[in-house]
Each structure stands twice: as structure tokens, then as C-alpha cells.
Simulated scan of single mutants.
Amino acid sequence: MAKYAVICASNQNRSMEAHHVLNFRTNIKTSKKGFNVKSYGTGSMVRLPGPSIDKPNIYPFGTPYEKVYQELKSQDQQLYTQNGLLSMLDRNRKTKEAPQRWHESRELFDVIITCEERCFDSVVEDLSNRGQNLNESTHVINVEIKDNHEDALLGGRAILQLAQMIESSNDIDADMDGIIEEFTLRNPGFPILHTVAYF
């Protein structure tokens, strides 16, 4: 099984929806657990909507989802229930402890799926800056997903489909172009970028 990273800006919405879907995808017939997946953000801080556009809630990476959930709930439960933040954080805290920053991780992955072009650029640049000393290749794929709850749900399903297609390949290096072509035909609403990078 390939090892996956899913990445957005704050490791809160899009990457966590994909992480949740991939993590808990079980096959009843084989009782096989979900995919081997971790999730990250590429931002400098975690940014969440606040009471107004110019007052976002900002947290350092590593702040537990549980802590953010309780803080926002005590600040304005009605607002953060209405805008979906509390249900998003509830999902997150059931998936893993806290948001992680990509640039601080030193794990290797076979496939890295980003959810936004600037996150894709940030990951590719970071891998290049690391010096590629291990000479281990990875496929970096961007599935462009708007940062809202509805699109994150659809994007999570699309990423699950992409991962299933990758898993059905015996040679992802040889088959990746064909997999991406087929995925794009099936999911015209999700533009794709792809490159091979090295750890």
C-alpha cells in the first residue's frame, strides 16, 4: 500500500476531510482498514474564520483541535455552529490530535496530494530546498478544491477515488499519467497538476 500525505493551507478543512475519508474507508468484505495517510498544512499559522473577515482566529500549528473547539464554542457557540466550524473541528478531533505543518515533517511519502495550487508550489519548493539527498521519488498531485465545507466534502470523495485508482496499479510510476488522465475525465470539476519530486 502506498503512503499518502494530504495537504492544504491550515490542515483544518480540505486536507482533514480527505484524511478523514481515507483513514476511515474500510472494506467490509476484507475488513481492511483505511489508507496509510497523514495530513499537513503549508501556512505559517492556522487561520480559521472569526467574528468578522478582518478578525480571523489564528493558532500555531500543533494547537489541539479539542482546545480550538472548546475555545470557539465558549466564544460564540451560535456563530461557530452556523458557519460549520464546530462540526469541522469535531470531525478533526476524531481524526487526529492537532494540525501539523508540512515543513516540519521529515516523513517520506509515495504520493502527496495538495488541495490548492499555492500549497502544491510550497511543497515542491520545500522538497527541492531539502536537497533531494535520499533520492526517493514521490508523486506530488494538486487537486484544486475551494476552501469551503461543501467543496471539501466533494474534494474528499474525489481524492478517495484518486487514491483507489492509484492503489489498483501495480506500478504507479508507469501508470500515473494514465491514472491522472482517467481521473480528470471522471472529475472535470477538479483541475489537476502533477510532478515527480524527490526526498
Rank of each mutant, 00 (worst) to 15 (best):
Y4I: 00
A5S: 12
A9Q: 13
N11W: 09
N11C: 09
N11Q: 09
Q12N: 14
Q12D: 11
Q12E: 14
T26S: 12
N27S: 14
N27D: 13
I28N: 11
K32N: 03
K33D: 11
G34Q: 04
N36E: 01
V37S: 00
G43R: 06
S44T: 15
G50R: 08
P51D: 08
D54G: 10
K55V: 11
T63E: 02
P64L: 02
V68C: 06
Y69F: 13
Q70S: 03
E71T: 15
Q75T: 11
Y80C: 04
N83P: 04
N83C: 02
L85Y: 09
M88Y: 02
R91V: 03
K94P: 06
K94E: 14
T95H: 02
T95G: 08
Q100G: 09
R101K: 13
W102F: 12
E107W: 07
C115I: 07
E116H: 05
R118E: 00
C119W: 05
C119V: 02
L127F: 09
Q132L: 15
Q132H: 12
N133F: 15
N133E: 14
E136R: 15
S137W: 01
S137N: 07
I141L: 04
I141H: 03
I145Y: 01
H149W: 13
E150D: 14
A158R: 03
Q161S: 15
L162D: 11
A163L: 05
Q164L: 00
Q164I: 10
Q164C: 03
Q164R: 13
I166W: 02
M176E: 03
I180C: 10
F183K: 12
R186Y: 10
N187F: 12
P188K: 03
H194S: 11
V196S: 13
